[in-house]
């Protein structure tokens, strides 16, 4: 087997994995701020998909403008969900489990009623392929991956250097202590939840042209995101990126030898292996 083939397989794996990292980063950001797992996270991804379908495919707005709009709209939906529901669930793991499963069901049913149960195809925004160094990648995949990487970098810069980003890191490490330094916890929760959902919405917008849009489209990326988070360690943002790279490379290489159904199982194998060695994931704290 040639080196080119291996590199090509890795590249294919990484492409989509970067988008799943976006979904995972949102989940883990929300977990680190509110200490809850939002099982309806995939439904915010689905919202991003439908926004993209209507704004881009139906109304014909520019793809990147649509993407920006999807991020904002879904982020806003996240803020509303936090104010109405999740603010009352801070630290209440079990309540959050039940409530967010309920929200998942309500959002999926609402999507079925409003948009129909059938898949809605979103045309590719970009055609053609790029060849370089003996590798081939479609322009669409390239745009999707690079956009995801730009969003990941934006999140990093925001958390590292901005004032609200600093407050988020403080709340993640010790919410009471952050409050005593003058951080408005309610504001940080709403903002953090909104940003987490915005990332999911962006991911939904990026993958809408790759897969079709449907009420149940959130399931696959969320499963991938959970695999990534468990590999990387719950609540760890660097862990999510490394987990995504690991999952992407395993799936990419695996696709050389097996069909896509079998490839989907590989992720779980990696999870089991990682947890055997490090029960809290690669970057999981004590």
């Amino acid at each position: 087997m040639s080196i080119d083939l291996l590199v090509q397989a890795l590249l294919n794996g990484f492409g989509l994995a970067m988008v799943y990292v976006l979904v995972a980063l949102g989940l883990t950001l929300i977990f680190s701020i509110l200490e809850i797992i939002n099982f309806a996270h995939g439904e915010f991804y689905m919202l991003g998909g439908y926004v993209t379908y209507y704004v881009f495919a139906v109304f014909g707005v520019n793809y990147f403008a649509t993407l920006g709009f999807a991020i904002l709209a879904v982020g806003l939906a996240g803020v509303v969900a936090e104010r109405l529901i999740f603010r009352y669930l801070r630290g209440k793991t079990l309540n959050a489990f039940i409530v967010s499963l309920g929200l998942l069901w309500v959002m999926q049913a609402s999507a079925q009623l409003s948009f129909g149960v059938l898949d809605k195809p979103v045309p590719s925004a970009f055609s053609g392929i790029v060849r370089a160094f003996g590798l081939v990648i479609s322009v669409e995949r390239l745009v999707v991956s690079l956009s995801a990487i730009v969003l990941i970098a934006a999140l990093y810069l925001f958390l590292r250097w901005s004032r609200p980003g600093r407050a988020m890191r403080a709340v993640a490490q010790d919410a009471d202590a952050a409050a005593l330094q003058g951080v408005d916890i309610e504001l940080v929760s709403a903002l953090g939840f909104g940003i987490g959902c915005a990332l999911a919405g962006g991911a939904g917008g990026l993958l809408a042209p790759v897969f079709a849009v449907s009420p149940a489209m959130g399931a696959l990326p969320v499963v991938k995101a959970f695999i990534i988070i468990i590999i990387g360690g719950m609540g760890s943002l660097p862990g999510a990126v490394v987990g995504g790279l690991l999952l992407g490379s395993v799936e990419g290489l695996g696709s050389l030898f097996m069909g896509s159904a079998a490839v989907n199982v590989l992720g779980f194998l990696v999870v089991i292996l990682v947890l055997l060695v490090r029960p809290r994931g690669l970057f999981g704290g004590a």
Binding site: R166, R169, A170, Q173, D174, A178, Q181
Partner: peptide, 16 residues
């Protein structure tokens, strides 16, 4: 304290 932040970052949080 904020364990993953440096001494300086902790102090700066105090002036948030």
């Amino acid at each position: 304290l904020f364990p993953q932040m440096t001494v300086l970052e902790n102090l700066r949080m105090g002036a948030y």
